[in-house]
Computed example of a mutant assay.
Amino acid sequence: MAQTIRVERMRSTDIDELLPIEQELFGAERWTAGMFRSELEQDHYYLVARDAAGVVLGYAGLAVMAPEEAWVNNLAVRRAAQRQGIGERLLTALLDEATRRGATRVLLEVAVDNAAAQQLYERHGFAAIAVRRGYYQPSNTDALVMARE
């Protein structure tokens, strides 16, 4: 039986639930509570995915940087909830919002060693356009820049 997932706008009160997911997935490269607060204060578009009990399973954020350009700032799903379509739902919702706001180009950065995420993005029309050497710190991992026109 598939679990019920709700996707809704992130609130500042959700930030504490994101931090363990950040730690689990990104370790030393995780975002801080202050970084998420700053994103929300700048009115960037952030979503959370919750299970039936209200527990945050994943989150994603979008920033519209120019009238026609948007960036996916992050997309994360707790390991235990991955491969259940949650990331797909979050990404689709971000892309719908980018379109609603008039963005004709959406970009993102993803670690070069994150093949699963790259495949998700490719299924949604993203293609690699550049590499940012040593982008993720402190691991010095390269980032693949992907764009969807």
Rank of each mutant, 00 (worst) to 15 (best):
A60C: 09
G58K: 05
N140W: 04
I129E: 10
D14W: 09
Q118V: 15
A103L: 02
D113Q: 07
A111H: 04
E149T: 08
V77E: 04
V48F: 13
A111E: 07
V131L: 04
E41S: 09
A93Q: 09
R148K: 09
Y135R: 02
A128L: 12
V77H: 12
A2E: 10
R78C: 05
Q82M: 09
E17W: 00
Y46G: 07
M10E: 07
L95F: 07
W31G: 09
A143S: 02
S12G: 00
R89A: 13
L144S: 04
L19D: 08
M10D: 02
E149V: 05
Y135P: 07
Q23I: 14
L91M: 12
H124Y: 12
T4W: 12
L91D: 06
G27C: 03
R50V: 03
S12E: 15
D96K: 02
M1Q: 06
A103N: 06
R11Q: 15
D113V: 09
L90Y: 03
G125T: 12
T104G: 06
H124K: 08
V106P: 01
T99M: 03
I129L: 12
L18E: 08
I86M: 15
D43A: 13
Y59V: 11
A63N: 05
L95M: 06
R148D: 00
Q118G: 01
S38M: 00
D14M: 11
M65P: 14
Q118I: 11
A66L: 08
M35P: 00
A127H: 06
Q137H: 09
T4Y: 13
G125M: 05
A60V: 03
W71S: 11
Y46M: 13
A81M: 08
M10Q: 14
N74Q: 14
L25A: 05
A128D: 00
G54C: 07
W71C: 04
S139M: 11
A2I: 15
P67H: 02
T13L: 14
G134S: 03
E29W: 07
L95H: 09
L18I: 03
V56E: 15
A117W: 04
W71Y: 11
R83H: 12
V131S: 13
A127I: 08
R9D: 02
D142T: 07
T32P: 00
E97V: 11
E22D: 11
A80I: 15
